[in-house]
């Protein structure tokens, strides 16, 4: 369960979020809707533990994520969060496999376990034949699948996607929605920040939360 309690976030005296109170249950698919700059991405980064609130608390499974020291915050991100970034944030000169494996590197798992996990996500996201291709040579849709595979390599409990269809055409956007449907079946918490209307009428969406000027409407 994710709880955002009395959250305020300021950047250089500009208030990005104000009085945010939100509770997301396990297995829920939540859409954060709002225009650019409304504060959706900031909420995602607070939940993912890559940013801290100015005031208030982020609690995930009874753990005060917003108060964690760097080492534990990193561990939390690695174990609990699968983040699909708007710009994918892949390392362009690395191969598909190497990009997907980056979250596993600090864990130093056994080689057979690493291979098993990699093969699983490569198959799941239909990029097995691309495993040795350098990421910068892939299309936008393929890069997004690599980014999703990377988010899944640690089998996280929470999947966070920031504007996932912003750089995709209609066909690829539909393909992403199919992936989300499969994720929903796996009982994970899924939080998607978007202003793409394609998500708003989906029957798999549990809640549509609108954000405007840093506040939940």
């Amino acid at each position: 369960m994710i709880i955002l309690k009395d959250i305020v976030k300021e950047y250089d005296n500009i208030i990005a979020l104000k009085d945010i109170n939100l509770k997301i249950d396990s297995g829920e698919l939540v859409i954060l809707k709002g225009v650019s700059g409304s504060g959706k991405s900031t909420i995602l980064s607070l939940i993912a533990g890559i940013n801290r609130p100015t005031l208030g608390e982020v609690i995930v499974d009874n753990r005060r994520v917003s108060k964690l020291q760097d080492r534990f915050a990193s561990l939390y991100r690695r174990e609990s969060i699968g983040f699909i970034f708007q710009k994918y944030n892949l390392i362009p000169n690395l191969t598909v496999s190497d990009n997907i494996l980056t979250p596993l590197i600090p864990i130093n798992l056994r080689e057979d376990e690493v291979r098993e996990r990699l093969d699983k996500v490569l198959k799941e996201f239909n990029i097995l034949d691309k495993r040795d291709i350098v990421v910068k040579n892939l299309s936008g849709g393929e890069q997004q699948r690599v980014a999703i595979a990377r988010a899944f390599i640690n089998n996280p409990k929470i999947i966070i996607a920031d504007e996932p269809t912003a750089n995709l055409d209609e066909v690829l956007s539909m393909s992403f929605i199919d992936i989300v449907k499969n994720l929903k079946d796996n009982k994970k918490i899924i939080i998607i920040a978007t202003h793409d209307p394609i998500f708003f009428d989906l029957d798999i969406v549990d809640r549509l939360i609108e954000i405007k000027n840093g506040k939940i409407l």
């Binding site: 993912a48 890559i50 760097d70 080492r71 990193s74 561990l75 991100r77 690695r78 174990e79 969060i81 983040f83 970034f85 944030n89 892949l90 390392i91 980056t102 979250p103 590197i105 600090p106 990377r150 640690n154």
Partner: peptide
Amino acid sequence: KQEIGVLRAVGWSIDD
């Protein structure tokens, strides 16, 4: 810098 940011975002600590 971007690469370091990505690695941090996917769970690398400063130590890593």
